[in-house]
């Protein structure tokens, strides 16, 4: 599969503003963050969750717990994938029982990743609620999943790919639409 960059939809500043707004919304919706914890979905949800936690701390002066979830063992497509994904560690080093958890991911698409993430979380304990924050919602849901916090809605075609870049993993920030071209 070859990808060609079509157009940029968010730059560094736009990403920063979107995350700041989401941080405010999380605080507002939960009436403070005393009981809130963030869990990023590997890979790019991890750094995004860290950044949200940093913004929340700037605003509220409270450090919320942050964890990282690897959902590989919970995927529903393991038997159909042609190449096997690597399994990484889940690092949720706090008790999630009774917490108001915010799952964080870069792109919301079919909803299958979120389904797997919720199963993975529930095996770790019983949170009071699970909310969902995404940087980009591109539509095309295949499961009844809806985000509580959205950085940007990006109507897209299935022939396109949405790539999110984060400084921590990619050396730059930004969101671009890529076109799938048959090689």
């Amino acid at each position: 599969m070859q990808l060609r960059e079509k157009n940029a939809i968010m730059d560094e500043m736009a990403m920063k503003r979107a995350l700041t707004r989401i941080a405010h919304e999380i605080i507002e919706r939960n009436k403070g963050v005393e009981n809130v914890a963030l869990v990023g979905i590997r890979r790019r949800g991890g750094p995004l969750a860290q950044r949200l936690a940093a913004r929340i701390e700037e605003i509220e002066g409270i450090k919320v717990p942050v964890g990282i979830l690897d959902i590989t063992l919970y995927r529903d497509d393991l038997t159909t994938l042609s190449s096997q994904p690597l399994v990484h560690r889940t690092e949720v080093n706090f008790d999630i029982n009774g917490k108001d958890l915010v799952l964080v991911d870069d792109v919301l698409y079919t909803g299958r990743t979120v389904r797997a993430a919720m199963d993975a979380l529930i095996d770790l304990g019983r949170p009071r609620c699970i909310q969902l924050a995404v940087l980009v919602d591109r539509g095309h849901r295949e499961l009844p999943v809806k985000a509580d916090y959205i950085g940007k809605n990006v109507p897209s075609s299935k022939q396109e790919n949405i790539a999110v870049y984060v400084q921590e993993l990619d050396g730059k920030d930004g969101v671009v639409i890529q076109e799938i071209v048959d090689s």
């Binding site: 690897d70 590989t72 063992l73 919970y74 393991l78 690597l86 399994v87 990484h88 560690r89 889940t90 199963d119 993975a120 095996d123 770790l124 304990g125």
Partner: peptide, 23 residues
């Protein structure tokens, strides 16, 4: 190396209260 690296998250699974994944 792949087997040994994959065993690390597996060991985490065993240490949890719910020692089961649907893989």
């Amino acid at each position: 190396e792949l087997i040994l690296d994959t065993a690390i998250p597996m060991k985490d699974v065993i240490s949890r209260d719910i020692k089961k994944v649907p893989a």
